[in-house]
Design a protein around this nucleic acid. Structure first.
Lengths: 165, 165
DNA sequence: CATATTAAGTCAGCTTTGTTGACATTCCAA
DNA sequence: TTGGAATGTCAACAAAGCTGACTTAATATG
């Protein structure tokens, strides 16, 4: 097989290597969500709540529409999650000032506290993985993940970064 | 913040860097599953079917119990998926020879054909991402993903590789 | 040999999270 | 003023996970 390729720069693209990458992605994602999942289970919340909380924390005052585009679900699905978070006093929904059709979402103090708890757990695992792999590996990790995104989500991924202080 | 750390080897572990890694993981996983999802939707199958098909293809003759451990779901949940795949003639279940309690699972020709179709799509995206990022990035990508796995799944991840010819 | 354990399958019921489709409200803009 | 956009809500449904209880068959163990 290998002798069919011209240079060593192509060796890592064998089907077997790609399959291993696919499986690594699958198993790693399980680890990635494991810690927040455990916390959420004790609170009768799910991954959908976590995602909403995460991106509201990341872009305070974001609109429902923007959140929909980031999360890639229907408004009905997001609304159900959002409603429970608002009812439980974790998220605040304020009518927009310039455009009153829009609702701007922010975390309450309680919401921010839960966000911190979930984020701490997830970052701890990320930190451990980054430490174990080293800075160069981390750079590569980020490069490959970015290349794997759908173009419109890659744009949103960068947009979140830029809107940050 | 940064001045609290002693060396540049710690600079990439800021909360902001970790948050970006978390978001990259989230967006990339969406891309990772997008292509197979589109194919599965046309066939009235879901991601759960894909996972079962993938690991049966990877370890032909695997037992139900082994699959359960890899997928991390209950047998009731797996059974529902497996039953439809067997009914549809994509998976074959044979009683074990040494231990007749066990069922050994393999893909039929039709099952292998679907596996190829799904796998081709997923590998094409993986290949494009690998190409775009380069060999060194791929090595780092794999290292970080491995470090992120739960220990028991990391062992299984390696076991699949070793059982391969 | 008798009993316990294991592998697999099944039934019932429940939850989360996604989906469509239909419809109302509010508000901006042409 | 009328059309379209943003939001929200109701209803119904589906995929895919869960628990718990139970059966059957085969193997392991005392």
């Amino acid at each position: 097989m290998a002798e069919l390729h011209s240079g060593e720069n192509l060796l890592f693209l064998t089907d077997e290597q790609l399959r291993q990458g696919i499986e690594a992605m699958f198993f790693a994602y399980r680890g990635f969500t494991a810690d927040p999942d455990r916390i959420l289970a004790t609170l009768a919340y799910g991954r959908a709540h976590h995602r909403a909380i995460h991106f509201i924390a990341r872009s305070p005052g974001t609109t429902v529409n923007n959140l929909l585009a980031i999360l890639g679900v229907t408004k009905q699905s997001l609304n159900r999650v959002l409603r429970t978070l608002i009812e439980d006093g974790l998220v605040e929904s304020r009518v927009g000032t310039t455009d009153k059709r829009e609702r701007h979402l922010t975390l309450t103090e309680a919401g921010a506290a839960l966000e911190r708890k979930l984020s701490d757990a997830q970052r701890a695992r990320m930190r451990a993985a980054y430490r174990a792999a080293g800075p160069q590996a981390v750079a590569g990790f980020r490069q490959v993940l970015e290349a794997m995104m759908e173009p419109d989500l890659r744009r949103r991924y960068h947009a979140i970064r830029e809107s940050d202080t």
